[in-house]
Design a protein around this nucleic acid. Structure first.
Lengths: 361, 361
DNA sequence: GTCCACTCTTGGATCGTTCAAACCCGGCTC
DNA sequence: GAGCCGGGTTTGAACGATCCAAGAGTGGAC
């Protein structure tokens, strides 16, 4: 009668002539097992094709090595392409660190918080990855308060949780670090590089096409444009705002280009930039005499590469790697081993044809 | 002393003055418990905030209600946007049926199969969702052979696994249904509707801009264009092929439009269509006399809506719903309850401005 | 009043792993 | 040689649920 069922610790133990615990030790703390015994056990494991049952382990240790991630609403924050790449990178990085990603859905932040609780108590999920942080985000606070490991893609956009520390110490609770673990891309540095690139090419009136004020990400990117102007010691020019979208981008660009002095457009996203590209082409047709208009986008989506759009590339792989690193450390209970809890990653300007319109000085 | 730890069945049982099994029955087969007892137990559950520990349950029952999904390589098969929406819909549908999605990464099909085995024996995953099926796909065969529940988004593109049934019956193995569970979108019907729509508008020479031959999805969409022509009793016109991409689309469109009789372009994807749109605008500029050229795309990505591109919308939600339905049935061991193991869903033509160029008859 | 049938409840065993403490045994000290 | 030490290994219990078979309770029929 062959061993039909999958082998367990006991099966392996019998085969190697030791006890279950010794087998367990070989797997979890091999250094405390005498080398020859270890060898014998390893051979038995190999012969039987034993694989540890993580469910049983989880029941005992209360560690799942599972990370929860809410599928963010498609239209929200990070755009489709970016999310896709992030999910990819995150899955790979997590897997490399012995973690797994579990998805869940939630209608809003409140539902998401309920789901945290739910997943935590029923499935024993170890931690969460949050995306699309925004100002007034209640999720981070809740997770901190419940001592649940988490890290966010996106920095906290609130001014400062000032009342927090005071309140905690007043109650005698050990003062937690007011800031949670997060990784973000330095949008400011991105648009600053893009703007500087255009200034270097001789452009002087560079318009910024942004999202409506109030979104942290958008305001941050706007700030980079401002900063480049300040550093150059110049007066900054036009700002036009619109919701994200190609058509919206065209409209915003047209408004900006109504100012005849504008020779370049720094856009808050590739969608806006694509729309702007359209407007610029139309303009070149209707006003052939006007100086060529340069454009930069943001996100470096595949479509940007296709149409030759200069754009700011987000190193998503790095973001995912750092997030996993931070979560892994929190789960292992050694958060002090990770030097930075807050990481700003500098994006990279990818220069293509749409910004190559050299401009007379 | 307050009850600090999370409540278990025993905690609830004590509170309700019954045994653990009764509590379990209330949860799993409430109909066999006397109403007043049930009421009392439910109250206790509620008061204590008891939540069943799925890990413990899983250890006993060997059911995880977990579905594995490989994060498909970004460039592959279904394009980014579609994948994104699919993941979304799948997560929601699964959650609605008491299932969860767990992601994993794999470099190629072989690695994916290894991961099936791995996830199955260690994590006890119940089934898998496969995307990007292709001809010569070894994954489905492996899963069938190992009796692991799965369903694919995408039909099997192989001619016919003819040798399969014969081989199986020769070995005395009970003949499995040769076909596995799959759900796909009827691309043929989609391009057929698009082409018919253009024929109805008076267009006669409608070019098809497709992918290189050999991809199941691409050939299927090509077939729809052919079918519409045949049904109309007309000679079909030009075909141009290119890899997916905006720039590639522009190039292909230019080649097609070299034929002066062509007045419309049916494109295999929105990317190609966007490129074609570019080519058509350029043409309108350089040859103002030429009749306006109509365009249709495929996938109905957000960008299509933005630029007014007529496109074929894939009802991804339905795909996800059917896949979950099939997997749920397989996991519950009642596959016969699902009427169709193979589902082709008809897409919907979304008419926008790019195909509204009425054409003289 | 006794017995039976039926319904609901109960305690024990089990899934596969890890924790905690006990055990064994050779080497060393006094 | 008794006692102690300590590395290496074993044993018993626990994690929290479900399965199984047997126990208790109720009501009706004779």
């Amino acid at each position: 009668m062959t061993q039909a069922s999958t082998p367990t610790l006991v099966t392996v133990a019998e085969r190697a002539g030791v006890s279950r615990q010794t087998v367990s030790n070989v797997l979890n703390s091999p250094e405390i097992v005498r080398p020859d015994t270890r060898e014998r056990v390893l051979r038995a494991i190999d012969e039987l094709g034993y694989r540890t049952n993580v469910v049983a382990r989880q029941l005992r240790t209360r560690r799942s090595f599972l990370l929860g991630l809410r599928m963010p609403p498609a239209a929200d924050g990070i755009s489709g392409q970016v999310l896709d790449r992030f999910l990819h990178a995150l899955t790979e990085e997590a897997q490399g660190s012995g973690l797994r990603i579990m998805l869940f859905a939630a209608a809003d932040d409140e539902a998401e918080i309920r789901e945290y609780e739910n997943l935590r108590t029923t499935t024993g999920i170890d931690g969460f990855v949050l995306t699309a942080t925004h100002s007034g985000d209640t999720r981070t606070r809740w997770l901190s308060d419940h001592d649940i490991p988490f890290a966010t893609f996106g920095r906290p956009w609130d001014p400062e949780p000032a009342g927090r520390a005071a309140e905690a110490s007043a109650e005698g609770v050990p003062p937690k670090p007011g800031h949670h673990a997060w990784v973000d891309i330095d949008g400011r540095a991105g648009t600053r590089a893009a703007t500087r690139h255009l200034l270097d090419a001789g452009h002087r009136r560079i318009a910024f096409l942004g999202w409506p004020e109030g979104s942290g990400v958008g305001d941050d990117r706007h700030a980079g444009w401002l900063a480049a102007y300040e550093e150059a010691g110049l007066e900054h020019a036009v700002v036009q705002r619109a919701e994200d979208g190609v058509a919206e981008g065209t409209a915003a660009a047209n408004r900006a280009l109504a100012d005849p002095g504008v020779t370049a457009l720094v856009c808050v996203s590739d969608s806006i930039a694509l729309g702007a590209l359209e407007a610029v082409r139309e303009l070149a047709r209707s006003e052939p005499d006007r100086a060529p208009v340069a454009i930069t986008g943001f996100d470096d989506t595949p479509v940007a590469g296709a149409v030759g759009l200069t754009s700011v590339a987000q190193p998503i792989d790095q973001v995912a790697a750092r997030i996993v690193e931070q979560l892994r450390a929190q789960i292992d209970g050694r958060p002090e081993d990770v030097p930075d809890h807050q990481v700003l990653i500098e994006p990279r300007l990818v220069v293509r044809t749409t910004s190559r319109t050299e401009h007379r000085r």
